[in-house]
Simulated scan of single mutants.
Amino acid sequence: MTTISLTSTTIKNMFDELNQNFNGNLSIGVKEHVLDIDNEFGKGRIRGITFKSGISLLEFDVKFLQDFTLLAGTSKNPPICFAYCLKGKVSHSFGSQQAKNTLENFQTGILTNRAFEENRLYFEKDEHVKISLIVVKTSSNQNILKQHNLNYRIQKSFINGDRPKNSIYVGSYNLKIADKIQQLEAIQQRGIVRSLMIEGLVHMILAHEIQQHSDDLKNRSFNRGNLNSKEMDIIRKISIDIQNSPEAQHCISTLSRLSGLAPGKLQEGFKLMHGTTVSDYIRAVRVEKAEELIKTSDLNISEVVYSVGFTSRSYFSKIFRQKYNCSPKEYKVHQQLMSLSA
């Protein structure tokens, strides 16, 4: 087993320590640190980003070739950590003597701990793990904390009193967060645009985490439905296929046959992940793809309609207007005028 101790809580120093231990390839962008590993320790990527708001994002997308334990200490004002496991599983304990809690794929977790408490993350050998950690800075100085209103409100919600306690909440499955993380991974922009897009999605993921916690407290019995994690992973893959090929004639019976999931489980999975039915999700993806094509291609409206899988132009115009408050033709004319004036 390999054990690595991190002595710093800042992203910059943390990645310097990780690089010294893993001997990987460290690249630094606009407040974004990326460590690529491909050696005897394992293969994958660790990414860290910090924002002015006092919120940081730490992502592991790795497969270690041996059991690995990461030790991370905290400061006088330990942060609040919101975790989401997209793939595999990771275990955690406070120090070496306390019980482990395991976060499996599609599960959320929220962690608070005492000042200067040691956290231990356990990664199993040959387990491909993808986990995102959103770390929210806290402070004992309320005046400083109130400068970042979001941090102030989160601290008030999850730390009762002046002295935080060791606590870990492992929540129910949530596929909506997986969808947002997928969007996070798909960002191709550079510079300040990239930073703003990442920060916006991180805030959305954080909102989903907090909402999940609130819903679980209300329900008390975690709502995982009748789907296991393998079936939920299938739902996620189907969603990606629909996004990549909206023009295909997707339907419940075809998706059920290809996935091996009963129609009822398909509907339940889409309700959990997207809050809508399969057919409504397909329609929404097609409309968004059509809007992109109208804006960026030379296709006429009829060509756009059929290229994204719709069979009726009048029906497409109706739902396009419902979403964008104008007709496809009006939208295209507006885009053309914008191009001419640019």
Results as ranks from 00 to 15, higher is better:
Thr112Gln: 06
Ile134Gln: 05
Tyr122His: 13
Leu111Gln: 04
Phe94Leu: 05
Gln107Asn: 10
Ser132Leu: 14
Lys100Pro: 02
Leu145Arg: 02
Ile134Glu: 01
Asn105Trp: 00
Phe94Val: 03
Lys125Val: 06
Glu118Gln: 12
Thr108Ile: 09
Asp126His: 14
Lys125Ile: 07
Leu86Arg: 13
Asn101Trp: 07
Thr108His: 02
Glu104Trp: 00
Ile110Glu: 10
Tyr122Gln: 05
Phe82His: 14
Phe94Ile: 00
Thr102Gly: 09
Val90Gln: 11
Thr112Ile: 10
Ser91Asp: 08
Lys125Cys: 14
Cys81Lys: 14
Glu124Trp: 04
Glu104Gln: 09
Lys130Thr: 08
Arg120Phe: 02
Val135Ser: 03
Glu118His: 02
His128Lys: 12
Phe106Glu: 03
Ser139Ala: 10
Asn101Pro: 00
His128Ile: 07
Asn119Val: 00
Gln107Asp: 05
Tyr84Leu: 12
Ser139Pro: 04
Cys81Trp: 12
Val136Cys: 08
Thr108Met: 07
Phe123Arg: 04
Arg120Asn: 08
Lys137Gln: 13
Phe94Gln: 01
Val129Cys: 11
Glu117Ile: 01
Phe116Ser: 08
Thr102Gln: 06
Thr138Trp: 01
Gly95Cys: 06
Tyr84Asn: 09
Ser139Met: 06
Asp126Leu: 13
Asn119Arg: 12
Asn101Lys: 12
Ile80His: 13
Gly88Leu: 11
Arg120Met: 08
Cys81Glu: 15
Leu133Ser: 07
Phe94Lys: 00
Ala115His: 10
Cys81Val: 15
Ser132Asp: 07
His128Asn: 14
Leu133Gly: 01
Arg120Lys: 11
Ser91Trp: 08
Gly88His: 08
Ile144Asp: 13
Tyr84Phe: 15
Tyr84Ala: 10
Val129Trp: 01
Leu103Ser: 01
Ala83Phe: 15
Leu133Tyr: 09
Gln98Ala: 10
Val129Thr: 14
His128Thr: 13
Lys130Val: 13
Asn101Ile: 04
Asn113Pro: 00
Lys146Ser: 15
Glu117Trp: 00
Asn119Leu: 09
Gly95Val: 05
Lys146Val: 08
Val135Ala: 01
Gln107Tyr: 07
Phe123Ile: 05
Gln97His: 11
Ser139Lys: 01
Cys85Trp: 08
Lys130Pro: 02
Glu118Gly: 04
Lys130Asn: 11
Lys137Ser: 11
Ile144Ala: 08
His92Met: 10
Ala83Trp: 11
Val90Lys: 10
Phe94Trp: 03
Asn143Tyr: 11
Thr102Ala: 02
Ser132Pro: 00
Val129Ala: 02
Asn141Pro: 02
